[in-house]
């Protein structure tokens, strides 16, 4: 019954919950059920932040992540935090500029310049959407069209184009990565 589990992790203020919401909306529009949970420190900016989605066809028996299929690490702070629940064959995307170390273990890790791509588009604050596009492109758990619709639904007014550009840039980036390059052994 379980389809997949995904975690967006980084530091507070990076818009992790927003991308989780966008993905959640996209997935239920495809008839899937989601369970979204998050954890953050009692500050609005900074501090460890993570947001999880457990995606299933029927309501998940256990709604919290126990074996991640996809993981985003957008800040060095989040390194090591998810180690106990990274599932077999998990696909991990880390921001190459903000994260210097790599998760230990045999995972598929992509270290991608998410922040600088976002910066080129106009603001490093949309690194979250670049990441979402890249993860979805690599993982294939949600198509670009549906995610764009969901982004239109959730993106803050005035920043819609920037958010859409970021999402598209993420998908484009994923297409440039040959599968053979991605293994971290």
């Amino acid at each position: 019954m379980k389809e997949f589990e995904i975690r967006f992790s980084g530091s507070g203020g990076q818009g992790l919950i927003l991308v989780t919401r966008i993905l959640a909306t996209a997935l239920i529009s495809q008839g899937l059920k989601i369970a979204q949970s998050q954890s953050y420190e009692p500050t609005s900016r900074g501090g460890l932040s993570r947001s999880d989605l457990v995606v299933s066809v029927e309501t998940a028996d256990y709604p919290l992540a126990t074996a991640l299929d996809y993981l985003l690490i957008l800040d060095e702070l989040a390194i090591g935090v998810s180690d106990d629940i990274i599932g077999k064959g998990c696909l991990i995307v880390v921001d190459s500029e903000r994260v210097s170390s790599k998760p230990k273990g045999k995972y598929k890790v992509h270290s991608l310049p998410l922040t600088s791509i976002a910066q080129k588009l106009g603001s490093k604050r949309v690194a979250n959407l670049v990441a979402l596009g890249a993860l979805a492109g690599l993982g294939g758990f949600c198509d670009q069209d549906t995610l764009e619709k969901a982004t239109r639904h959730h993106a803050p007014k005035g920043f819609l184009d920037l958010n859409l550009d970021a999402l598209r840039a993420g998908f484009e980036l994923s297409e440039t990565l040959p599968p053979s390059q991605i293994s971290n052994k």
Binding site: A24, I28, L32, K33, I34, A35, Q36, S37, Q38, T59, P63, L64
Partner: peptide
């Protein structure tokens, strides 16, 4: 708290 802050479909 987990259930209170959990988002489900």
């Amino acid at each position: 708290e987990t259930i209170g802050h959990l988002i489900e479909t």
